[in-house]
């Protein structure tokens, strides 16, 4: 089975977010970049499926040269090879077009990625890719088993789960608990240095959206403390002051 895992290179979840250049650029100072947490679930499941069924796992990232440490980490976790599309991932539709261009020539059985990136939280790329390829897409997938040519999945819905099936090829947006994250071992880290990482120039796409500017939410006011001996005061305040009850 031939699996493609698309990963994002995003700020660590504990990062403090700020902007530079008159709020038009993300401030990378002091920020640690990681594989998107949802993408890492997808990658972990891909490696498990490869271990069980044979085949290959290729990781793909749309990013400039500075994303290579993140890609190497994915190789250390167990992907066989990597493709970096040499471009800034300007928006979901641009990223999807790059994945589609690769997928059209490679005929993957399974294209996995996170349910959304944790920077722009669009949650669009899996559906965009699948629609362009004319194949099914399922998200957010929390369980994925392959039986022959059939993918059996559980997806999270509001207040529960839905079990779905579809034949391969398909695209899945993944989330926990689809697999346990894998900690790369020393052998993995050593071999990641020599695994193939192909750099491909991007295909041109029609631009449909532009990010104009960023802003931070207004600062939160001080927390009003209520004495633990009179917690019922809380409801008075919620009712009369905050007006949320």
């Amino acid at each position: 089975m031939k699996i493609l895992v698309c990963i994002t290179n995003v700020p660590d979840t504990t990062s403090k977010i700020s902007f530079t250049d008159n709020n038009t650029k993300f401030n990378t100072t002091g920020v640690q970049f990681i594989i998107g947490p949802y993408d890492e679930y997808a990658l972990s499941r891909a490696i498990e499926l490869k271990e069980a069924n044979g085949g290959s796992v290729t990781v793909l990232n749309v990013g400039e040269a500075d994303t290579e440490p993140t890609i190497r980490k994915a190789l250390a976790i167990g992907a066989d090879d990597a493709i970096r599309i040499n471009a800034f991932p300007k928006d979901a539709q641009f990223v999807a077009a790059q994945i589609v261009a690769v997928a059209k020539t490679e005929n993957y059985d399974l294209i996995l990625m996170g349910r959304e990136s944790i920077d722009f939280n669009g949650g669009l790329v899996h559906g965009l890719v699948a629609e362009a390829l004319g194949i099914p897409s399922v998200s957010p997938v929390m369980k994925l088993d392959i039986e022959g040519n059939l993918a059996k999945m559980a997806r999270e819905i509001e207040g529960g789960k839905e079990y779905v099936e579809a034949t391969l090829p398909l695209v899945a947006g993944c989330q926990e608990p689809i697999a346990e994250w894998k900690i790369p071992n020393m052998r993995g880290i050593m071999s990641a240095r020599t695994k193939p990482l192909k750099v491909v120039e991007p295909t041109a796409t029609e631009s449909l959206i532009n990010m104009l500017a960023y802003e931070l939410p207004p600062a939160k006011g001080a927390c009003k403390m209520i004495d633990a001996s009179t917690p019922e005061k809380l409801f008075e305040l919620l009712k009369n002051e905050a007006k949320v009850l």
Partner: peptide, 14 residues
């Protein structure tokens, strides 16, 4: 964006 830690203004040109 950034899971509620910031906002962005997006222009749609389509």
């Amino acid at each position: 964006i950034y899971t509620g830690k910031a906002f962005t203004t997006v222009e749609l040109t389509s």
